[in-house]
Simulated assay, not measured.
Amino acid sequence: MPQTILIIDDDKDIRNLIEVYLVNEGLNTLKAENAIEALRLLEYHDIDLIILDIMMPEMDGIEACMKIRMERNMPIIMLSAKSEDMDKIQGLASGADDYLTKPFNPLELMARVKSQLRRHNKYNDSKSIELNNNRIEIDELVIHLDTRQVFVQEKEVHLTPKQFDILAVLANNRGIVFSIQKIYEMVWREDFSRSDNTVMVHITNIRNKIEYDSKNPIYIKTVWGVGYKI
Rank of each mutant, 00 (worst) to 15 (best):
L27F: 08
L27A: 01
N28R: 01
N28I: 00
T29K: 02
T29S: 10
L30G: 06
L30R: 09
L30M: 13
L30V: 08
K31E: 15
K31L: 13
A32N: 03
N34V: 05
I36G: 03
I36M: 04
E37R: 11
E37Q: 12
E37H: 10
L39Q: 07
R40P: 06
L41C: 08
Y44L: 05
H45P: 06
H45I: 04
H45K: 10
I47C: 07
L49K: 04
L49M: 10
I50R: 14
I50M: 14
I51D: 04
I51G: 07
I51Y: 03
L52E: 04
L52M: 15
D53S: 11
I54P: 02
M56I: 09
M56C: 12
E58L: 12
E58D: 13
E58F: 11
G61S: 08
A64G: 01
A64V: 00
A64E: 01
M66W: 00
M66L: 00
K67F: 04
I68T: 02
I68W: 08
R69E: 14
R69F: 10
M70C: 00
E71F: 06
E71Q: 09
E71P: 00
E71L: 07
E71D: 09
R72E: 15
N73Y: 12
M74L: 13
M74Y: 14
P75T: 10
I76M: 07
I76R: 05
I76C: 11
M78D: 06
M78N: 02
A81F: 00
A81K: 05
S83E: 09
E84G: 05
M86V: 13
D87W: 06
K88A: 05
Q90M: 13
G91L: 02
L92A: 03
L92C: 06
L92H: 06
A93L: 05
A93E: 11
S94R: 04
G95M: 02
G95K: 02
A96F: 05
A96N: 10
A96M: 02
D97E: 13
Y99T: 04
L100T: 03
T101Q: 02
P103L: 00
P103Q: 02
P103W: 00
F104H: 03
P106H: 06
L107N: 08
L107G: 00
L107I: 07
E108D: 09
E108L: 14
L109H: 02
M110H: 00
M110R: 02
A111I: 10
A111R: 05
R112L: 09
V113L: 15
V113A: 11
S115Q: 09
S115G: 01
Q116G: 05
Q116Y: 10
L117Q: 07
R118L: 09
R119C: 08
R119P: 11
R119M: 12
R119W: 10
Y123N: 14
Y123I: 14
Y123K: 15
K127G: 09
S128P: 01
S128Q: 10
E130N: 15
L131K: 03
L131V: 03
L131P: 04
N132D: 14
N133C: 11
N133S: 13
N133M: 12
N134V: 14
R135N: 15
R135F: 15
I136V: 07
D139K: 12
D139S: 03
D139L: 10
E140F: 05
E140D: 07
L141D: 04
V142D: 02
I143F: 03
H144K: 12
L145G: 15
L145D: 11
L145R: 13
D146A: 15
T147Q: 14
T147K: 15
Q149G: 07
V150T: 10
V152G: 01
V152D: 01
Q153R: 12
